[in-house]
Design a protein around this nucleic acid. Sequence first.
RNA 1: GGAGAGAUGGCAGAGCGGUUGAUUGCACCUGUCUUGAAAACAGGCUUGGGUAAAACCAACGGGGGUUCGAAUCCCUCUCUCUCCGCCA
Length: 423
Amino acid sequence: MLQLNYIRENKEEVITRLAIKNFNAKESVEKIISIDSDRRKIQTELDTLNSEANAIAKQVGDLFKAGKQAEATDLKNKSTALKETTKKLEISLSSTEEELNKVLVLLPNLPSVKVPKGKTPADNENVHEEGEMPKLSASAKPHWELTSQYDIIDFELGVKLTGAGFPVYKGKGAKLQRALINFFLDNATAAGFLEIEPPIMVNEASGFGTGQLPDKEGQMYHVGVDNLYLIPTAEVPITNIYRDTILKGEDLPVKNCGYTPCFRREAGSYGKDVRGLNRLHQFDKVEIVQIAHPDKSYEVLEEMRNYVAGILRKLELPFRILKLCGGDMSFASALTYDFETYSAAQQKWLEVSSVSNFEAFQSNRSKIRFRDGNGKPQLAHTLNGSALALPRIVATLLENNQTDNGIKIPKALVPYTGFEMIN
RNA sequence: GGAGAGAUGGCAGAGCGGUUGAUUGCACCUGUCUUGAAAACAGGCUUGGGUAAAACCAACGGGGGUUCGAAUCCCUCUCUCUCCGCCA
């Protein structure tokens, strides 16, 4: 959620920058400013009347003590009359606030000034590319054929148990999952991230805090009887740990990581993009989260970007880094780097990580603050990134490392899998 | 699932109708003392709105009510804890 003061003082800038996200904010911004001015007017009026009523109540108390009942009665009547007006003002204040909030909450975060213009993924800026492109024979297979050839992932069985998008990992396939999770967690903790194992269901307040609710309601699985949501990413519970918290300045940056399964309804997805491991309803992911000082958050973003690049390097996967254009960015993000690995048999780039700075957008919703030099609470910046999401990593590992004798496991991972080949 | 208790500042814990944003202790910050630290003493120490700064207003889990006046009384919702049951 954008800060009201900022909108009020930088009206034109807000509109211009949201246009980079292809969001026409003119009407909303005008509305916000006008409702807010009403709100302040009502607030002031109410404050004045309350102040008066407080004074009367005090006098009545004093008169009672002095035994001057008659005078007290007069004042009582005055106060009763006052109350009718304050009641009305209170109602109008809360409805004004509600109206204001409704508009405010639907405004996306401002893209950072570094964000390139553009409408579609084709407009994303390729900022880095590294690694050797594998040369596969013509008979190279896509991962969904390899997984059934070696019997390591069973998509059909998942359909039987649950539905499409819920694969069953078996044997070395299951072990590979476990190996990757541990590999990612060990790397993250070695880099100073504190490991967290959070709940994988969250309440409404948490969903709101990180920006999934109310606008992305349909993307999460909802457990109706208890009104809880299955998390789409560990970002939600981990960031919400710090909801309604005032951190000490020296606590920053907070660095957390965590492994969780992730659940996404992916309503509206279809076609070849959803083949095999490319898009799932349930998948495993290790997430890294940081809460940073506003002055440092872009340094932190670069640090996280380097960290993710480092893991991909260890896994010997060719990858590229995209700086997302305004049109492809998420609702809450101010700047996002996407990491894509090249999947040789499908001959396409697959997104395996997304690293974002949300600036104060999430922290304003969830009141994540720290005390600055003056001891005043101030909103912190939140950042997170996948490090990494498993399915597409598995897809590229399988495809890129396939040989006639089986699939080679990258060296860095062998201590975790306990085997060098899937065959 | 059944029965009971409770929700107050960073934590512990008073207050149960009259000014209380809230006694007190711990923690924390500043100062005096000290070579330094500890101890002792003095002072400070919730958040939000509002203001140039004040004044002022709001908030004692959420919502509603009674009253001139509510942290305190009533209703309601949510959550937590204890015991019983069930159970990895």
